[in-house]
Design a protein around this nucleic acid. Structure first.
Lengths: 137, 137
DNA sequence: CTTGACCCTGTACTAGGGTAGCGGGTTTAG
DNA sequence: CTAAACCCGCTACCCTAGTACAGGGTCAAG
């Protein structure tokens, strides 16, 4: 069914302005307009928006999503380009995870130390942050 | 030893402009100035900058770092507030890691599928992104 | 004393991803 | 028929974390 912008936004759980923003960014156009200019979004737009939001959820930037959409438009056959992009993104995410896990371990260790300190000791978190050596991270 | 801004920046591996930016943001002032206005950074500034960069490395935002610095100034005794902040940040990071790992699994599965598809099949990544159901993430 | 490397302040710009408000037109329920 | 709720285009603004440039002053070596 056809939806006006407000319904489309609410239905997808995003802001009305965001939909306009995506249009400006060349990601999503309404399928049709009323005589008075109201945007009407049909099934295809909803599919496309779902694509955009999922890809965003998978960590693709809007720029990358535009490329994916173009690839999709180009040819269904072009699975290889898509897979390459997905693989690159995967590597990137693996890097982020590794980094965050290092952060996580460092912080957890600091919090641990903090719990076991004697009340006369200085705060070990502050002490670590003040250290000269780069052992923490 | 006292360093001018360029030496300080180079020594810490950051941009000169970034140091000015941190000053504008109220994170770090030079200890002294020459008659002509040159900034001179001493030991205390270097300690403070190291603190800032380490905290940044642990995932704190500049805003949060400002709060940490204030806490630090308030009282060395206030270990509890510091630990609370560290714990909050830890929880936040754990959330991010969990999310990224879910993304990672989804993407890895898609790439897998992509490798094993028959050349007649449609690209499984595109197919997934077009799906209605929210199973992917 | 000049040259080059450095420093000053101040302003403006970047990217990414939106968000808000204005003045006015349209639609729909009562 | 009217009032609320929507929508239009447009411009401008938000945040974070910087980065760049302009126009000018300073310092040290040769």
């Amino acid at each position: 069914m056809e939806r006006k912008i407000g319904q489309m936004a609410a239905g997808m759980g995003i802001n009305r302005q965001t939909l306009l923003y995506y249009e400006r960014m060349g990601l999503l156009n309404a399928e049709s307009r009323s005589a008075s200019g109201y945007r009407y979004y049909g099934e295809a737009s909803q599919l496309r928006l779902r694509f955009i939001l999922k890809a965003k959820g998978l960590g693709f930037s809007l720029q990358e999503i535009r490329e994916l959409l173009n690839l999709r438009a180009e040819a269904q056959a072009n699975c290889d380009s898509i897979r390459t992009k997905a693989e690159q993104k995967l590597a990137e995410i693996e890097g982020k995870v590794a980094f965050l896990i290092r952060m996580q371990n460092s912080l957890a260790r600091l919090v641990q130390d903090c719990e076991h300190r004697k009340s006369s000791d200085p705060c070990p978190i502050l002490a670590t942050l003040e250290e000269n050596e780069d052992e923490t991270i």
